[in-house]
Amino acid sequence: MALSFELLQEAVLFGVLLGCFYAAVSIGLSVSFGLLDVPHVAHPAIMVLGAYCTHLLGRYGWDPIAAGVALMPLFFILGVGIYRFYYETFEKRGSDAGVRGLAFFFGVAFIIEVGLILAFGVDQRMVEADYIGRSLAIGSFRLPWRMLVAFGVALTLTAALTLYLSHTFTGRAIKAVAQDEPALRLMGANPVRIKQWAFGIATAVTALAGAMLIIVGPVEPSLDRVYIGRTFCVVVLAGLGSMTGTLAAGLILGISESIVLMTFGASWAPAVAFGLLLVVLGIRPQGLFGR
């Protein structure tokens, strides 16, 4: 259990890579749940769905990242559809939307998971690409290329979404709808259309996150269960809807998980995210970088 300095260094380094990846898989939720207040517990399931779609395209020789990008428009439409449906059935009627909305998304997540089991079986699936399986040696460290690729895409994605939300007209409208919906309505804007657009973007980003998920490691249909903890941990820790906070929270989770992995072993790792989540919820529900 004694942790040498080198081992700690390696754990932190790996944790940084892992953390950026966690930030990227959570950023869609940061928009849909953090900004739009939709109780989107099906987010990890949609991500796993994205990973399986990437796997399917991979069979036809697609590179996983190209596949992820190609899936984004499709998932955008899916997201718009989901939000439209959610709005019409729950949000518009108002009463009791919380309980029913939660049950609805929980059910949807479950349907996606079982659907994937029916279509692909419970075996693990993976993709093939040049950068998977090889690693980069820097000094005494060996960094797997798949983590580096995920790291790069994650950083790009986070930066792009942050810029989009703060610098474009629609992006700022999305933030405005999160801050004060009635005021936006008084300005003559249609909050439902903005939210629909935002939810579409969140879902499109989740498709790319799914592609990274399958690059980082093999996926199985029930993988979404663990990621409920990881993604919500990151989003809550970040303070709802904060993009830079999401990156910082991802790093905190990634480094803690990586250290626990090296000291206590793999069987304890899944509990880290959930433990951290409980601590944050118990002590500071508004998160570290909360509004």
């Binding site: 749940f33 109780p39 517990v41 919380g98 939660l102 269960r225 663990v226 409920i228 903890g229 919500f232 809550v236 069987s267 304890w268 899944p270 509990a271 959930f274 433990g275 989540l277 409980l278 919820l281 118990g282 529900p285």
Partner: peptide
């Protein structure tokens, strides 16, 4: 632990309890 939490926050906390309990037993 969750007395201050409502809605989805409470629900997510209960998911966390499953995984922590499972990890302990494992």
């Amino acid at each position: 632990l969750t007395m201050r939490l409502r809605g989805i926050f409470f629900s997510i906390a209960t998911v966390a309890i499953i995984f922590i309990a499972e990890t302990l037993i494992t």
